[in-house]
Write a protein that binds this DNA or RNA. Structure first.
Length: 425
RNA sequence: GUGGGUGUAGCUCAGUUGGUUAGAGCGCCAGAUUGUGGCUCUGGAGGCCGUGGGUUCGAUUCCCACCAUUCACCCCA
């Protein structure tokens, strides 16, 4: 137990971190291109923020939060997602008086107490984007196109984009009446949980996976067919824009975001290759959220993108990420005088910005060379008494095996030139 | 919370029809004439065979429980 990471958490080791750097840098870069700026928010917030911002009736709040009292008696919760914290920050920092729209992105860990399975962990990583201040369908399209571009540039194929509209509170209320009429007559045939949902959140019944319930629901009215005129027009425009931008999508009337404050557009990017938790990215519009959290009415839209799932998908598609490079040079030595020389050269190289390693294991020359090979050093040099005396040494190119006699004083210059692209040096 | 699979070396996995010192490949460390890697060869380190209990003369092997892990349900990233 002492030597085991807690359930649902894991280490990201040096051998795989380059993949993380790669997708992180790409995400920052693409988000910046769209004018989104990075925000960093706390890992924990007041519990009530999530109760409000995520919604009291959701599974997340009801059973998945890491909640505890701090020593001051405050109820604190580790963030189960990113949106609520960003919304809080938007309000707290008066972002409504920033130039509009406010476009933010983030790279966070999040925490949910759930059973672990493929692509689902208790501590997981998300990229996200939140766009405040625009109710325009263009904002929806922009956020979705950001994702489309991002996946494209990573080389990911075949992620399926599903979109839907769940209307506004007004149309949802109307729809709920219609749905309840439909369900009311069939209530007896539904499972226990569904009967429970009937009063609390009838829309969730449509999500039920139990066969007998599904059978009763085949002809159930879909929310999309009952949204009001404004919402329908909004949805039409979003679709038009996606078509104009050549972004393929399907309409999935079944997407019903569990989070309470979602309005109008909801969407997800789904994979079929990474197990049953195939949603790589989920998002939508939340025009009521800022107000619900205590701010003035502000439209918003955003998404969360699961990094673990993204990486699983990239693996399943055999997408190659450029491997990290080894140090430019390994400095080996034998003897005390040579060691001092090696130390001073290593410091000069490092000061000049040249990655280099020097033996600190007291190994034989042969073993030092083996090590230089394992760490994928570009060059190696071995210093001994004769090198100390003559000021010259053999610089060995580790990939070709060629050696060149050089003056030790010139080593920094030579490697700098090499790095500047003069690979012939 | 529920159900199935799996726990033997750092990793991937053999194996013992229950019987003394538990194996391979990879990885790690070192050596193959004295100061030069990759290939090859040799050697070495490293296992309470997940934990606890039961059956037995004897358990890593059979049984039970627990724990961990994994996949799935629910839900979500």
């Amino acid at each position: 137990m002492l030597t085991m990471a807690p359930k649902g958490t894991r280490d990201i080791l040096p051998d795989e971190i380059y993949k993380w750097y790669y997708v992180e840098e790409k995400f920052r870069e693409v988000a910046n291109r769209f004018g989104f700026r990075e925000i960093r928010i706390p890992v924990f917030e007041h519990t009530e923020l999530f109760q409000r911002g995520v919604g009291d009736t959701t599974d997340i709040v009801q059973k998945e939060m890491y909640t505890f009292n701090d020593k001051g008696g405050r109820s604190i919760t580790l963030r189960p997602e990113g949106t609520a914290g960003v919304v809080r920050s938007y309000i707290q920092n008066g972002m409504s008086s920033w130039p509009q729209p406010v476009k933010l992105f983030y790279n966070i860990t999040a925490y949910r107490y759930e059973n672990v399975q493929k692509g689902r962990y208790r501590e997981f990583h998300q990229f996200g984007v939140e766009l405040f201040g625009s109710a325009d369908p263009g904002a929806d399209a922009e956020v979705i196109s950001l994702l489309h571009l991002y996946f494209n540039e990573l080389g990911i194929k075949n992620l399926k984009l599903n979109i839907n509209s769940i209307g506004c509170p007004v149309c949802r209320e109307k729809y709920n009446k219609i749905l309840k009429e439909y369900l009311g007559i069939r209530l007896g045939k539904l499972c226990e949980t569904c009967r429970d949902r009937f009063n609390r959140n009838p829309m969730r019944i449509l999500d039920c996976k139990i066969e007998s319930c599904k059978n009763e629901l085949v002809n159930a009215p879909a929310l999309l067919d009952h949204i009001c005129e404004d919402c329908a027009m909004h949805f039409d425009k979003v679709r038009e824009k996606l078509i104009t931008m050549d972004i393929p999508f399907s309409i999935d009337k079944g997407i019903v975001r569990g989070l309470d404050y979602y309005t109008r557009t909801v969407f997800e990017f789904v994979s079929e290759n990474i197990g049953s938790q195939g949603t790589v990215c989920g998002g939508g519009r939340y025009d009521g959220l800022v107000e619900a959290c205590g701010g003035s009415p502000t439209p918003g839209i955003g998404f969360g993108l699961g990094i673990e799932r993204l990486l699983l998908e990239m693996d399943s598609q055999n997408i190659e990420v450029p491997l990290p490079e080894g140090p430019d040079i390994f400095i080996g030595f034998i003897g005390e005088k040579a060691e001092k020389l090696a130390e001073s050269i290593a410091l000069k190289l490092r000061t000049a910005g040249i990655p280099c390693e020097k033996d600190i294991m007291g190994r034989s020359v042969k073993s030092q060379m083996k090590y230089a090979n394992k760490i994928n050093a570009r060059f190696a040099i071995i210093l001994g008494d004769s090198e100390v005396e003559s000021g010259k040494a053999e610089l060995k190119n580790m990939s070709t095996g060629e050696t060149k006699d050089i003056h030790i004083d010139t080593i920094v210059d030579r490697l700098l030139k090499y790095k500047q692209g003069n690979k012939n040096e």
